[in-house]
Design a protein around this nucleic acid. Sequence first.
RNA 1: UACCCGGUGGUGUAAUUGGCAGCACUAGGGAUUUUGGCUCCCUUAGUCCAGGUUCGAGUCCUGGCCGGGUAGCCA
Length: 578
Amino acid sequence: MTTSKRHADDTPNRPDDSPTRPLNFIEQIVEDDLRTGKFQGRVQTRFPPEPNGYLHIGHAKSICLNFGLAARYGGLCNLRFDDTNPCKEEMEYVESIKEDVRWLGFDWGDREFFASDYFEQLYQWAEQMILSGDAFVCDLNNEQIREYRGTLTEPGRNSPFRERSVPENLDLFRRMRAGEFPDGSRTLRAKADMAHPNLNMRDPVMYRILHAHHHRTGDTWCIYPMYDFTHGQSDSIERITHSICTLEFENHRRLYDWYLDRLGIYHPQQIEFARLNLTYTVMSKRKLLELVQEKRVSGWDDPRLPTLRGLRRRGYTPEAIRRFCDRIGVAKFHSYIDVTVLENSVREHLNATAPRVMAVLRPLRVVLTNVPQEHVEHVAAINNPEDPSAGARQVPFTRELFIERDDFREEAPKKFFRLVPGGEVRLRCAYIIRCDEVIKDESTGEVIELRCTCDRKTLGKKPVGRKVKGVIHWVAASTCRKVQVRLYDRLYTRERLDDLPPGEDANQYLNPNSLEVIDDCRIEPSAAEAQPGQRFQFERLGYFCVDSRDSQPGQPVFNRTVPLRDTWAKIDKANKSR
RNA sequence: UACCCGGUGGUGUAAUUGGCAGCACUAGGGAUUUUGGCUCCCUUAGUCCAGGUUCGAGUCCUGGCCGGGUAGCCA
């Protein structure tokens, strides 16, 4: 079975995993629950982003997990925007998130929800808690609340307002809603336990006063519920069975359970897993935002960023990302995934699907002295050896060609089997040529042209009496097109950016060579009309994608998604260090 | 220093829940090759430590070590 077969299925909401993959710990919990009938055999998950930033590959892990679980067990996955903080959230993010989730290949049907849709219900529940004596209006300000909270090792103290009467609390809370008080002057707090070792349980704030315009509810509200008082109830309303979140919410589970129990409503199960860390990049919204704002990258869709928009522009496929997410597993251990795992995922998919084309990044002129000036021939080239249905194309072959500068060396190092003076090499899909003469710029000594002869008996045939091991790519000088190519590399030179020595900043480790723009590349004519988003393998070089922002009709700009594995580069490096 | 969570080759993740520590990636070697790609084969390398229970412990118990999280009116 070829890998291309496994990759053929691009149906949304389908996990890309093989059925034989062992279950991760969350799948085991779900299967146990299915077995015991805990949720009457239902599986209902949700992906709950806050619309305050763009999605990145770490979110993709969560998306694949939640939608994958639903798909695997015949359940449903909702898309829910966790929009309880009007100060940071915007509609623009809502749209971009939807676009990215859809692009990844998932479908939430009509189950598109907003926590803000539940504001009225949440408010009613808050009143219910006041009535049951589980909540009170507190007049302490920000700093005072912090002081009263105690520390990690010392218990907190009760707020002086903790024993207000139910009618007074109710009155005050209603007037908070009515807008009678300024921001920060009062809060609604839960009456939990100020001595609790879990600080989240020390009379947590349920509502704060915020006279802010909300992207969906406008000015309807001037009090907004906190995450803890929103998330569990939202899960409850939506009848979520397994509420999957990242490890930093582990300490919040106690509160999550407490609110649901006090309210006496349907109780989903929160399960935490470790967020994704990738080597040579950063994943936090804060760092990502900083890179964009300080213009260290061109924007949220800069192809060097791990954002879904960046990866998309870089040429990554949804399939490759889903496959990656399936491959890295799910656990509670804080781990770092080697970025090569991601790179291999695209290589695998693109190897199976991307049409091959020849392009020369750094051209070196070759003149075939035994080919007439006006000679134009078309040689057949297979579009994708991994996919016979991709067919073949005709590539023009003429007297003057360009080859890659790297494919010629005046002095051949050990194991170099490309072109050398007096040596032979195969032109991919065409003839074997021999280098007879090296023309140099007299002043600089730079090699500017090679005079070669073409063995016309070697088209589709092995040469007689000798072995020619090297194969190089080329384009015909007269018919090729000049294009811009951008070579992207990892954003940072340091593997892990979250364990910097004190005083150091991640910016010190920004890779100065993360982007190399080459304007003088040549590509065979068949790719000149490529459309934005189209992906190719440039033979022997790597996978490239037509940039969707800077390409013009008939003038594509190519972004390198990832280079091909390069065994020669390793040998060459070893040679040099010897 | 309180509470919570975690620790299996270099990286990540399994082990039928107490029964031969497996898989993927990486690295190294080889085969094949009109892409130094792909594919195929081989090799190196691991249960944090110390006790205990047991015929048998990665798994259970006790103690320790190490790492992470938590003191927003952020999520």
